[in-house]
């Protein structure tokens, strides 16, 4: 059964098994490899994307559940050449090391700031449970506060 949804503003129709996780549809069918596979069981957050504006772990999100929805991935976050303020904060604070977890990390943080524009450390602890095996966490915390501030100033 064809499933139609929008990805980064573009309508897509795919004829695919409905239980295929959104992650693998993005990566293998649509060539959007910025979203990463880390665990497949919703435990690490590497695959985080937005569905209708909320962060979801796409490895455990069947594609049939996004029918009619708007999906946003890391590739759709910047506005042309202008980076999202979270991406900019990630550069300013030199967050990524290997970088593999950072697409999911950034998407989770964008959702956090959309919901809680000025999060406390406790808010951050509670909301950002993604795994980074390179251990960039303390820079992530600083960069989140910086991005929140940039949002206020904007």
């Amino acid at each position: 059964m064809p499933i139609t949804f929008r990805v980064n503003g573009v309508a897509r129709t795919l004829d695919i098994e409905g239980d295929t996780p959104l992650l693998w549809v993005l990566r293998d069918e649509l060539g959007l490899t910025g979203t990463k596979f880390g665990c497949g069981v919703a435990a690490c957050g590497a695959c985080t994307v937005h569905v209708d504006g909320s962060a979801v772990r796409s490895c455990a999100y069947p594609v049939e559940a996004v029918a009619g929805a708007e999906v946003r991935t890391i590739e759709g976050l910047a506005n042309g050449d202008t980076l999202h303020r979270v991406q900019q904060a990630w550069i300013d604070h030199q967050v990524p090391q290997c970088g593999y977890c950072q697409s999911g990390m950034i998407m989770a943080v964008v959702d956090l700031l959309d919901t809680v524009p000025n999060p406390t450390d406790e808010d951050i602890d509670f909301a950002i449970t993604n795994i980074c095996r390179c251990g960039t966490y303390s820079r992530i915390r600083k960069a989140i506060h910086a991005a929140a501030k940039a949002g206020e100033d904007a």
Binding site: G34, E75, Q87, I91, G99, I106
Partner: peptide
Amino acid sequence: QRRLDIPAKVKGEATFGIDVVLPGMLY
């Protein structure tokens, strides 16, 4: 110094082994 590999990594553009796509490939 700012790392040269970071801009690509915040845009999801850095190619890791798992991201390699070749015409006609099987999985």
